[in-house]
Simulated scan of single mutants.
Amino acid sequence: MTLRILFAYFLMITGAAFAVVTVLGLLRFPDVYTRIHAGAVVLTISAVLVTIGTAVYVWEFFLSLKIMMIGMFFLFSNPMATHAIARASYKRKIVLPEQYEIDAYSDYLGRDK
């Protein structure tokens, strides 16, 4: 095996390990907002690493460019989508933890109106 293929495998395995960490975070975190955080941050890193590893493995210019564009789509769309989900769940008062006594965002987001 060449060094390029070993590097591609390393990137893909690292991305898969981050995906496993995401699943553990989704199972172990206590409320919706921390679970969304695990899904946004770690799953984005996982998807980008897997797509970079796949692009390095393929190593054809146009196909690798398409794969990298998919990785860029993940990089931009996943945080925006999870932010929209978190904001909608906050406005709808979905599983609001009781331990948060100070709610600094209710006036800003207009949830109590």
Rank of each mutant, 00 (worst) to 15 (best):
S89Y: 10
A38T: 07
I85Y: 06
R92H: 15
K93L: 13
V95Q: 15
E101K: 14
M69V: 01
L63T: 11
F62M: 10
G39T: 08
A55I: 07
L43D: 09
I52D: 03
V95C: 13
M72H: 00
F76N: 01
S46R: 05
L49I: 02
V58Y: 12
V42I: 12
S46I: 04
R92G: 14
V95E: 15
K93D: 14
P79N: 08
S64C: 09
L96R: 09
V95F: 15
S89V: 11
E98F: 10
H83Q: 07
L65F: 13
T44N: 14
H37N: 12
F76W: 08
N78E: 04
G39R: 02
K93R: 13
V41K: 12
Y90Q: 06
I67L: 13
G71S: 11
V95R: 15
A86M: 05
E101Y: 14
K66G: 04
T51A: 09
M72C: 04
T44Q: 05
I52F: 14
A81G: 11
E98S: 13
I94A: 14
F61C: 04
A47Y: 01
V42G: 05
E101C: 11
A81V: 08
L75P: 00
L75G: 02
G39C: 04
F76I: 03
F62I: 10
M69D: 02
E60C: 06
L96F: 06
L63D: 04
F74M: 00
Y57I: 08
M80Y: 10
N78W: 01
I85T: 08
A47K: 00
V58Q: 06
G53M: 09
A88T: 13
G53Q: 08
K66R: 10
I67R: 03
S77L: 04
T51F: 08
Y90D: 08
F61Q: 06
G39I: 02
T82H: 12
A40F: 10
A40H: 06
H37L: 05
L96M: 12
F76A: 07
K66M: 09
Q99R: 13
H83E: 01
E101A: 14
A40D: 03
T54C: 15
R87W: 11
K66E: 10
V58C: 12
V58W: 09
V50G: 02
W59D: 13
L65K: 05
Y90F: 15
P97G: 14
T82I: 12
N78A: 04
G71F: 07
A84Y: 11
S46Q: 09
Y90P: 03
A86F: 06
K91T: 07
A86V: 05
F74V: 00
L49N: 06
R87A: 12
G39F: 03
V56H: 07
A55K: 05
S89A: 15
H83N: 03
I70N: 00
V95W: 13
N78C: 06
R92M: 14
F73D: 01
M72I: 01
K66T: 04
I67D: 00
S89C: 15
S64G: 14
A55Q: 07
F76T: 00
I70G: 00
V50Q: 07
A40W: 02
F73N: 00
Y100H: 09
R87M: 12
I52S: 07
A84H: 08
Q99C: 10
G53W: 03
A88R: 14
S77W: 02
A38I: 01
